[in-house]
Each structure stands twice: as structure tokens, then as C-alpha cells.
Amino acid sequence: MARSQFPTSRRSYLAAVGATLATAGCLGFGQGSAQTIEMGVVPDVDPDTAIQQNTGLAEYLENQLDVTIDLSTSADYAGMVRSMASGQVDIAYFGGVSYVLAHHRADAEPVVVGSKDGSTDWHSVFITHESADVAAMEDITASPGQYDLVFGDPISTSGTVMPTYYLQTEHDTSPADFASSTHVGAHDATAKTVANGSGDVGALNARIYDSLVEDGTLGDGVTEVWRTPGFPDYPWAVAPSVGEGRIDAVRDAFTSLDESDNADILETQNVDEYVPVTHDDFTSLNDGVEMAGLLDDGGQTTG
């Protein structure tokens, strides 16, 4: 049975995991002595929800691969990159940017991405609160200095990096042009910050926003003002510890998820199916990461 390694306190979790791994090392596929996989997920929502959303998938993979899976998350996106780079994670769910960093720093390789409605593209959405009195994105970009901007994790693809990119390329506006620019971590935290009126404009993952709207979490005061063009994001990637002989098995387990038998897992993952990918599918994002200078920060970016 998959088990969460994330207790109530993120601080105590990280300390406990660090101590355990320092003693025992990561028990991945590649070691041959124990069939245990360390599986990590970036905290694109609050940590408890991130674990909950991936527990069913972890249990499915346990059965498909005949292994035990230890499921965990991290304090921020950069923490998951560091976990793979230090050999503490074998398989991880990354944002696009954090994957690119893990590819360069930990030789991570993507195996699958989720497809929804026939597309593997993801989008960011800009939202605002009714108190900001904004009707369209042009209202914001005409006078950005009047508004407080809220982003997610600093290296979140759809919560910071791509919204920043499209602000600049589509609207000739920079986060520095706003009255303030704040990072609050997970996508749901961004939405809730805008919903409670603590921020005027927020950018977050569009699929997560749609889910929050559907379940009524945000109330009636939050409005979408702009949805960006699509971009690659959210691959499942493997570390070298998995071993070449096991990568195909991992990929096949993901792509074998079927709506007729596992619709609940796919719905929780917010995808219709998983499809194979390679690093070449992230070439444009890799170029963007290099242009942004994110490969030069030594992996120290935190949320």
C-alpha cells in the first residue's frame, strides 16, 4: 500500500526524510536489493491535497510494477529537484520548469505527460477579484502599477515562469511594473489569495483554476480575465536509479491507465490519458529556462 511521507508539519517531514535517507539511501529500482520506489510530487496544491491526489495512482503503480511505493512531496518545487539530484527520489511529478532543471542537474528523463481533450498543452490563467474593478487584461496592463500581482512558486511553469513570459511577449508588461509581485506557493493558494481580496491579480494553472471554480471553492467574486497560449508542462520523469530496463515498464504502466477501469484515478489527475514523451518535447521550454538564467542559480530557488 502506498503511504504518505508527509506529516502535518512540512518542517518535521523534511527533517525526518533527510535523516532516514542519510542512513539508508534511496531504495530505488536500480539497486536490485529492494523493490521500493521513492515517488515524489511537486506541491502544486497544498501538501496534504498533493498526497491525496496521487495516492490512488501510487497504489495502481504498485500493482502494475509489483513494487512498494513511498509517496512524498516537498516544501517547494526546487525541493523536488534537489531530492532527485541527491538520489532521494526515483520517479517524480514535476512542473515543466522544475523538470528541465532536474534534467540538467539530475539526468532526469520524462516518460509521460497527461493528455486532456486530445491535447497535452497546459495554460496559465490570469484572475482578478471584483473589488479590483477589472473587466479585461488590457485594463490591468494599461495601468499595472495600480495592482498587486500574485504568483505561485518561483519556478512553477504555469504559476510564474510562463505567465511572466506571456505578460512580456503578449502585453509588453513585466511583473516589476506592478505595485507589488508576491509568490505564495501552490496554485490554490494563489487563487485563494485573490479570492479573499489580498491580491488584485493572480496567475495560476488553468486546469486547477477550472477545478476550483467547478467545486465552488472561490465563490462569485473571482473572474478570469485572460488565458495564455498553450505550453508543455507537468511530466512524470524518472531518475537514473530506475535503470534502463525498467523505464519502459514505468511508461507502460502510465499509458495503460484506462478510463473504463481507472476513471477515478485519471479524474483525480485531471487528465484523460497519459502519453509518452521525450526530452525533445520540452525543447522550447528548455530554451526558455536557459534564457531566463534559471540554470545559473545552483538550484537554490525556493518558494
Rank of each mutant, 00 (worst) to 15 (best):
G299L: 03
P47L: 03
D188H: 06
F151K: 09
I69K: 09
S12F: 07
Q5V: 02
G25A: 12
T49K: 04
H171D: 02
L204Y: 11
L294H: 13
G159W: 00
E170F: 09
Y99G: 06
G216C: 13
W122I: 00
A75S: 04
K116A: 10
A263R: 07
A19V: 03
A78W: 02
A85S: 07
G95I: 01
G245Y: 01
R3W: 12
S156M: 08
F29R: 15
Y209R: 15
F151Y: 14
N286P: 00
L101S: 01
A58E: 11
F29H: 14
D261P: 02
S72M: 01
G152P: 10
H104P: 00
A176Q: 10
A253C: 14
L212N: 09
D220Y: 05
S83M: 01
D90L: 03
R227M: 08
D280Q: 12
E170I: 05
I91D: 05
Y274R: 07
V271E: 05
H129K: 13
S124Y: 06
P144G: 03
W236Q: 04
S241E: 05
Y13F: 13
N54V: 01
G118N: 07
D70A: 04
Q52D: 13
P163M: 03
D148E: 12
Q64V: 09
S256Y: 04
G118L: 10
A58T: 08
V89A: 06
A263I: 12
E259M: 06
D280N: 10
A191V: 01
L101Y: 05
A16R: 05
D281V: 07
V277D: 01
R11C: 01
D200Y: 10
Y77Q: 03
P154Q: 14
D210Y: 11
A78P: 02
T255F: 07
P7Q: 11
W122E: 04
G159K: 02
R3Q: 14
S72F: 00
N196E: 12
P7A: 09
H171C: 03
S9M: 09
V271S: 07
S4I: 03
N54L: 09
T157Y: 11
V201A: 14
V184E: 01
S180M: 07
G18T: 09
Y77S: 00
G56N: 12
